[in-house]
């Protein structure tokens, strides 16, 4: 439905005066300024709905969050008092919060390396040959699209201490059974196992995309240069070329792992004895179960700061090392 011909001429005076071009200098700048103003007006109109939403859903809530974190507000209690940084100072000595922070760090520390390395291994294995490529890609991707809460329920059954298939298999090979979700030492690794299972497929497709972007000539060049084994070609070409992808995969995995909530809410509710308390679960409990809005807000601010710090590390420090431009 593009119009052309005469209509285009009608438009001309508006865009560029075709005759009597003003002399160099002020009048022409004025015409230019008119166009700029028109463009700016259009831009603001197009962005307006988004700007309103940003104000309502981002700026105001962030401001309110910070404001609430400085008070002793409780849900359902009409009055509140300004406490300054008390809530933050309390967090420093709050054993439950510290435990929750540490648990989250342990969970992230387990999930990230394992799911990144496994994702890379799967991508390399798939890329190494031609048989059943699409099939394997889809199979390993399945957990990504399976509902987390539902799969958590399945894992709960698999990890059931007495009749769960995992323990039955351990018994088959003569190993003692494990109380996966019921023992405070094992519960975090058990949750991490589920997290790894779900993250591997996503990391794999990201690595596959990264591998597809490597110039094939580099492998040929490495071979000509004397890289005989697949091992030395990997370290000469694949690993350095995957630098940006790896950094990105690590960042995404860390951020998703820090936000772990669904499996904890479904399977352990932070238990046993708070040994699987993680940040989001603690914030949720504090804010929506105990209704301590002030404390929960302070925790949420800390949570945002942690995420920002992680992203800052990515963009400012590591990115310089893996981008070769």
């Amino acid at each position: 439905m593009l119009r052309d011909g005469p209509l285009r001429e009608d438009l001309m005076p508006e865009v560029l005066p075709p005759e009597d071009l003003p002399p160099r200098g002020a009048p022409r700048d004025a015409a230019r300024g008119e166009i700029d103003r028109h463009e700016a007006r259009a831009a603001w109109l197009l962005s307006l709905p988004t700007l309103v939403l940003m104000l309502l859903l981002l700026v105001l809530p962030c401001a309110a969050l910070v404001a609430l974190s400085l008070t002793d507000a409780e849900l359902g209690v009409p009055e509140m008092h300004f406490l300054g940084l008390d809530a933050y100072l309390n967090l420093l000595t709050d054993r439950d919060f510290i435990r929750s922070f540490r648990n989250t760090a342990v969970y992230v520390g387990l999930v990230t390396p394992a799911s990144v390395v496994l994702g890379l291994v799967l991508a390399l294995l798939i890329e190494a040959g031609t048989d059943l490529r699409a099939f394997f890609r889809s199979v390993f991707f399945l957990p990504v699209v399976a509902l987390t809460v539902a799969m958590a329920s399945v894992w709960q059954y698999l990890m059931h201490p007495s009749f769960g298939p995992i323990n039955l298999m351990l018994k088959l090979v003569g190993l003692p059974s494990v109380n996966w979700l019921g023992s405070s030492d094992i519960v975090l690794p058990a949750l991490a196992l589920i997290g790894i299972w779900q993250a591997v497929g996503f990391n794999m497709v990201l690595f596959l995309a990264g591998l597809a972007g490597i110039n094939r000539d580099l492998y040929a060049a490495a071979e000509m240069d004397g890289a005989r084994s697949a091992w030395s070609r990997f370290w000469t070409v694949t690993w350095p070329m995957l630098g940006p992808t790896t950094l990105f995969v690590v960042t995404i995995t860390v951020i998703n792992a820090v936000k772990v909530f669904e499996t904890v809410a479904t399977l352990t509710q932070g238990g046993p004895a708070k040994s699987s308390d993680v940040l989001l679960w603690t914030i949720y409990q504090e804010g929506f179960v105990y209704l301590h809005v002030g404390t929960a807000s302070a925790m949420a601010v800390v949570f945002i700061v942690v995420l920002m710090a992680l992203l800052l590390v990515q963009t400012r420090i590591l990115e310089r090392k893996v981008h070769y431009t």
Partner: peptide
């Protein structure tokens, strides 16, 4: 013999320099 064992050098259209 594999390329690595042939003692020839190649210049590629894309140059194939290691960017890192």
């Amino acid at each position: 013999l594999r390329a690595a064992d042939r003692d020839m050098a190649m210049v590629f259209q894309s140059y194939a320099l290691y960017p890192h």
